[in-house]
Amino acid sequence: MFSVENAATPNPSALDELVPSRYALTVGDIDVLVVSDGVLPLPTKMLGHNAKQVERDKWFDGMYLPRDAFDWALNAMLVRSADHTILIDAGLGMDPDLHLPRAGQLIGRLGAAGIDLTEVTDVVITHMHMDHIGGLLLDGIKERLNPNLQIHIAASEVEFWKSPDFTRTSMPDGFPDALRATAKKFWAEYSKYIRTFDDEREVAPGVRVRRTGGHTPGHSVVRIDSNGEALTFAGDAVFAVGFDQPTWHNGFEHDPEEAARVRIGLLKDLAGTGELLAATHLPFPSIGRVSADGEVFRWVPAFWDF
């Protein structure tokens, strides 16, 4: 059974890694495990393509990051509540000819943590970009899953990917085609497992998924709430630059203005409650809190507890 204690303990068959790739914590009575799927090397312009280059350069210089390209973190989450074991997003999985060799590590790292895929009762997909669904498309994975698995996705997300619109995105060459192909394959493989929702759904006691829109029409966040403690997994609603520059447009956003409104609203809410935040592309393990001064925000990383 998944718990903080056994998931945080090295498995004899664990991957030989020099840096940690999983981080366990509790939110009230709910066990949470953040698992790194690796990193994506992408152009820095993707984090603010509506900003002037001099402004982007200033931000990256201030963060001691290279100006041209850097590694985006890829985080997923495993949650244990009552008799549910819930995987939130599934990582990149395969490399669809985009030369991303350091991503797609989630399934191997779950195994190294002693997680048997048959334990997973539910999967929540924050949105259907390939770095959130691809892990389920690896060869042999479908056969290892629980036959009663339920995959929760917003209905508007499923509808969008029937004929996706990329006119307002700003992606490197090859990405739109890869995203279309991966979403199409995912639907073909897993449609019978998918349970759509309109606005929100309680997946398990204390685990609720809510559609936000913005990044994609059905983009969703997951809130874990137990015994007065809470954590929100924000998917792609928040990127590292989004605290200082919440109105900068990310290249993967299909509706950039709405994505900025969603981001600002979410950050205000989290600053008001003081609850924990995690997100796909914040530096691993991405656990922290938000402070705010008007619409200027600051990410406050949690001190690691081990």
Rank of each mutant, 00 (worst) to 15 (best):
M1T: 14
S3F: 01
N11Q: 10
N11E: 11
A14V: 08
V19W: 11
V19A: 14
D29Y: 05
D29G: 10
L47T: 13
H49E: 06
N50Y: 05
A51M: 10
V54K: 14
K58I: 11
F60I: 07
Y64V: 09
R67G: 15
F70P: 01
N75E: 03
D95I: 00
P96K: 10
D97C: 05
D97G: 07
L98C: 05
I115L: 11
D116L: 12
E119A: 13
V124I: 15
G134D: 09
L137Y: 02
I141T: 07
R144H: 08
L145A: 11
N148L: 14
N148R: 13
Q150K: 15
A155H: 08
S156V: 14
F166K: 12
F166A: 14
S170M: 07
E189L: 08
D198K: 11
E202F: 01
P205F: 03
G206N: 09
V209K: 06
R210K: 12
H215P: 01
T216D: 09
G218A: 04
H219Q: 13
I224T: 03
I224Q: 02
G228Q: 03
G228I: 02
G235T: 04
A240S: 11
F243C: 04
F243P: 00
D244T: 12
H254Q: 10
D255I: 02
R261K: 12
T273S: 15
T280A: 10
P285T: 07
G294K: 05
V296E: 12
P301S: 10
A302M: 12
